[in-house]
Simulated scan of single mutants.
Amino acid sequence: MKKFRTLKTTIVAALCLVAFLGTSYASDKPIKIGVLLPFSGVQAIVGETIFKAMEIAFEDANYQAGGRKLILVKEDTEMNPKMGLTKARKLVERDQVDILSGLVSSAVAYAIRDYVVAQKIPLVIANAGAQGLTREKASKYIFRTAFANGQYVGPLGPYSANKMGLKEMAVFCPDYAAGHEKASVFTERYTKAGGTVTETVFTKLGIEDFGPYMTKLKKADGVFAFYSGGDAIKFVKQYNDYGLKSKMPLVADGSVVDEVFIDSLGDAAIGIISSMHYSATLDNPENKKFVSKFRAKDGRMPNGFARQGYTTGAAIIHALNAIKGKIEDKEAFLEALKNAEFNDPAGKFRFDKKTQNIIFDVYIRKVEKVDGQLVNTIIDVVKDQADVWTSK
């Protein structure tokens, strides 16, 4: 009997030692965060902007959370769905990342969605705005710190009709998913506020000459437009060159007057009203520090993409701290991420508990020249905007 008790005590002690060593190993093991972004091609500037801002969030935390080291492992999606899925598999199966993040293209996000859910890997989307990702295709493993297409555009509808007095407007958008979703949301909110859309024009991506559309534009009180990058620059300049700016005020998605290229627009941009979930001119402590650090790292003023990158990193770090770094307990991490609340450069951060899509304040902005520099000056704020789908 004595030998049996001794053997039993030895086994229990051994099991406790194994458990202790396992716990110790887990607590010492670095937490890996995979970052899927375009680092080549025409959208490389977006990927680099998001990643640099993410780095700032991790630098602020000294690349630690919950007492554990944090490692970023980045891969280039090339804005290609098949490549995106291949890179996601590599990060999960070969690099053994604990969390996935990033994604600019909604097509890439959709391509990896089922894989992420099957592997039970938390995914924090830093840009891809396709509405379905946090609606019909929502999952407890998917979060979005950026926006759902139309989320920050929606408030421009009633603002245009009621505060600007624009009773008839035309809509210009590129002919792809985001263009259609944003046009739909603006139209819905604008007409609900009493406005009338006179015509909706969808143009191909990369169009060089908007002239054929602008010369046939019906008379209206104003125009709403969503374009980005080179298309935005061409649209704004040609809208001014055709003499439309003085006749029909331009109201736009914030990407039309993005801080990255706003200087390239010249005086053609002055007076454009836009909406966005961020402005580099926001006067709060978090934003002042963020602007200073981003300019030191990148040389430019931060834009909405930068804010999204920083917030993605900050949300992950916040959740890891809440669970004391125990990422092995995925359910605890998912719950901590869902309930994360903190102040980021754009204001108070939190997720919609139903969709796990971000809730944010929308800033109505006007392009002005301040001390010789074009800036998006905030002229109004629409508080606490969730995805319009959730607020119906």
Rank of each mutant, 00 (worst) to 15 (best):
K354T: 15
N284H: 07
I364G: 01
T49D: 08
K366P: 04
M54R: 05
K297I: 08
L205F: 09
A296L: 05
A183C: 15
V236R: 01
E55I: 10
G254F: 02
K167Q: 11
L37G: 04
E331N: 14
T9G: 06
D371H: 04
G325A: 10
D76T: 08
G299W: 01
L91P: 00
A44H: 05
E136S: 15
V97G: 01
A225Y: 00
K324V: 12
D344N: 08
N149L: 10
K324F: 10
V375S: 06
R68V: 10
Q238T: 15
A332W: 03
L103D: 00
G66V: 06
G84A: 13
A14L: 11
K82M: 11
K289N: 09
T23P: 02
Y213M: 04
A193F: 00
D253S: 14
V260C: 06
A126R: 02
L17S: 10
Y25S: 13
E328V: 10
S105E: 05
K192Y: 03
G230F: 05
A322S: 15
P81K: 09
I323R: 03
G254S: 06
C173I: 15
V97L: 03
K69G: 08
T355R: 10
H277N: 14
E199R: 13
T215Y: 13
F147C: 08
S160G: 05
Y152K: 06
E199C: 07
K69H: 11
T203P: 05
T23I: 14
A118N: 10
H277L: 12
L36N: 03
F143N: 03
I316Q: 04
T312Y: 01
A126F: 02
G22R: 08
F51H: 11
E78Q: 13
F290T: 02
R307G: 14
E181W: 01
A178I: 13
H180T: 11
K288H: 10
D387Y: 09
G266V: 10
G129W: 00
L156H: 03
N240Q: 13
S255E: 08
A53S: 12
V236D: 00
Q238P: 12
S246K: 14
C16I: 15
R189P: 02
R350V: 11
F4V: 14
K167N: 09
W389N: 12
L374S: 03
L244P: 00
R144H: 06
T9C: 04
R94C: 05
D209H: 10
A26R: 15
H180F: 12
T187S: 14
A319L: 09
A336R: 12
F349P: 00
G132H: 02
K324L: 12
A319T: 11
D209V: 11
G313H: 01
A146I: 05
A315F: 03
I262W: 00
D344F: 02
V362F: 02
I262P: 00
S184C: 09
F333L: 12
Y110D: 09
Y25E: 04
L123M: 13
M54L: 08
V382S: 06
G299H: 04
R300N: 13
L337C: 09
G211R: 13
